[in-house]
């Protein structure tokens, strides 16, 4: 992959990355980004709730939301799309999301080395200071899948 291309733009990349596979099934959408961070949104949907009698998003899709926002924050920070794999992801749940509320992830890639990317983030349902969950994770570049990783 040439590093001479236009820098990775999550607002553009999201258009195809979020249109396929698991993230499309969950209906994730792009919201915003900065130099090393990305915000994504998980919509409230009846078929994504965690308990039959409560209209609250399950914790599972929130992990997927945070994982995907992590990947996008890494590519944004790196400036290009590189093959990465999640090594370790930890999510602490502070409280359930509000009934029928969408959940927003804000994830930043705070350190990028040749082989690893470190991310941290939050999930909230409108007020970033009142978190639903906090997350930290480590991603690795995939050897051979992209020889330019870290360059």
């Amino acid at each position: 992959m040439s590093t001479q291309q236009d820098p990775f733009d999550p607002s553009k990349a999201a258009k195809f990355l979020l249109r396929h596979g698991h993230t499309a099934k969950l209906g994730l959408t792009y919201r915003d980004h900065g130099k090393n961070w990305v915000d994504l949104e998980l919509p409230w949907r009846e078929d994504l709730v965690g308990e039959i009698d409560r209209e609250i998003l399950a914790s599972g899709p929130i992990i997927s939301l945070l994982d995907m926002a992590s990947g996008l924050s890494i590519w944004t920070s790196h400036g290009s799309f590189v093959a990465i794999a999640t090594l370790d992801l930890r999510v602490d749940y502070q409280r359930p999301a509000r009934p029928r509320s969408a959940v927003i992830a804000h994830v930043e890639c705070y350190k990028l080395t040749k082989s690893a990317a470190f991310v941290r983030g939050i999930a909230h349902d409108g007020d970033p200071s009142d978190t639903v969950a906090t997350m930290s994770g480590v991603f690795m570049s995939i050897e051979g899948a992209n020889r330019n990783v870290g360059q």
Binding site: G21, H22, T23, K25, L26
Partner: peptide
């Protein structure tokens, strides 16, 4: 496709 991440692989989520 519902659990696919990068092509032909499971999504970590």
């Amino acid at each position: 496709g519902d659990v696919e991440g990068r092509p032909q692989h499971l999504h970590g989520g």
